[in-house]
């Protein structure tokens, strides 16, 4: 599953104004009654920085104006990600990345994932809200990039953290919401 990394180093701090947001957010009540909660984990400890964003791209319904990601995906301090606003449709994990700040400004390291075919991390949601675990993955660095030549990287699926472990962490962020009983129920199923 080797692919070239889009190693995008942008030494301009003003670029951090984008819409997805980051930080350690609490899980809120679903905005729409048909929203699903999608979650997973990326271990990118071998990458230049901590996991800052994960992008989920909408495949169906086809976007009228392609954006490439849906809003509302957040990262926890354990490097889990979640999005509790995923409406009925078809989606893929399209990218993940890290943002590293230093004296010269800020560098963004973007790692695109395959959006199509058997290698895509794909899922579907329906009108019935559900919890969807997309798995735990580890970033593996390949060849280092040079100017105009992107480096390579790979991701491999790993057993840890398990879905249960991810949910136990997310449960702490979902206290008092409609998600809480669903998460507790799912944790019980996973015992």
């Amino acid at each position: 599953m080797k692919r070239s990394a889009a190693l995008l180093i942008i030494v301009l701090a003003f670029l951090l104004s984008a819409g997805c947001g980051g930080g350690f957010k609490k899980i809120r009540n679903p905005k729409y009654p048909d929203s699903s909660l999608v979650y997973g984990h990326f271990d990118i400890s071998d990458a230049p920085g901590a996991l800052t964003y994960v992008d989920i791209r909408q495949i169906r319904p086809v976007e009228k104006k392609i954006r490439g990601w849906i809003k509302g995906t957040y990262i926890t301090k354990e490097a889990h990600y979640f999005n509790n606003t995923v409406r009925p449709g078809s989606y893929v994990l399209s990218a993940f990345g890290t943002i590293k700040s230093g004296f010269g400004g800020t560098s963004i390291y973007s790692y695109p994932l395959p959006n199509y075919g058997d290698e895509a991390i794909a899922f579907r949601t329906t009108n019935k809200p559900k919890l969807i675990f997309l798995g735990s993955y580890k970033y593996v660095q390949g060849k280092k990039g040079k100017w105009f030549t992107p480096g390579t990287f790979d991701i491999k699926q790993v057993n840890k953290p398990t879905e249960k472990e991810v949910l136990q962490d997310l449960l702490l962020l979902a206290k008092g919401t409609n998600w809480e009983p669903l998460i507790i129920e799912r944790i019980k199923e996973l015992k």
Binding site: L8, I10, L15, A18, G97, I99, S110
Partner: peptide
């Protein structure tokens, strides 16, 4: 292909990157 499914117009790369 559905209308708009193949879209090769310019776009922003990721949610965290304005290029």
């Amino acid at each position: 292909l559905e209308p708009g499914e193949q879209n090769l117009r310019s776009r922003r790369l990721t949610s965290r990157d304005n290029s």
